[in-house]
Computed example of a mutant assay.
Amino acid sequence: MAKYWWTPFLVNVLLGIPGVVPFWLVWYLMVNWPLAELGWTVREPTENDGMALWLVIVIPVVALFALIWWLANAPLRRRTSLAPRTYWLLSGLAPLLPMTALIANSL
């Protein structure tokens, strides 16, 4: 079953559902800190406590998601017939689909 392309696709789309939280946290951090410092975006006016507290929240959440993602994909990679480059491209983009669907639905 794992030799088909849709198995890692489904696993990674399902990982992308709870992955919306770390993706949103990284987006919020980027918009309010480095991109705002460069002048590309405008910082949230009520965000006046600084970004150090956000780092305490974002780093563990993103690290936990990355660990779960890796633990799900490393064994699955060995059981699939996809080329390594294709597998990792598919596994890297598929978790972004739920976040993309939420953004498209909000427009």
Rank of each mutant, 00 (worst) to 15 (best):
M1E: 09
A2D: 12
A2R: 12
K3V: 12
K3I: 08
Y4T: 14
W5S: 00
W5D: 04
W5I: 08
W6C: 08
T7R: 14
T7E: 07
P8S: 02
P8Q: 07
F9D: 01
F9Y: 04
L10S: 11
V13D: 06
P18K: 00
P18T: 00
V21Q: 00
F23M: 05
W24S: 01
L25C: 02
V26F: 01
W27T: 05
L29C: 08
L29N: 03
V31C: 01
W33I: 03
P34E: 05
P34T: 05
L35C: 03
A36C: 08
E37P: 09
L38D: 06
G39L: 04
G39E: 10
E44F: 14
P45I: 12
T46Q: 13
E47P: 14
E47D: 15
E47I: 14
N48C: 15
N48E: 15
D49P: 14
G50I: 08
M51D: 12
M51G: 11
L53V: 12
L55M: 10
V56W: 11
I57G: 09
V62Y: 00
A63V: 02
A63R: 00
A63I: 00
L64F: 02
F65R: 01
W69M: 07
A72I: 05
A72E: 05
N73L: 11
N73V: 10
L76G: 10
R78A: 15
L82Y: 03
L82F: 06
P84S: 08
P84E: 10
P84K: 05
Y87E: 08
Y87S: 10
Y87K: 03
L89S: 11
L89M: 11
L90G: 12
S91K: 07
S91Q: 12
S91W: 06
A94P: 06
L97Y: 01
M99Y: 12
A101G: 02
L102Q: 02
I103F: 09
I103D: 08
N105Y: 15
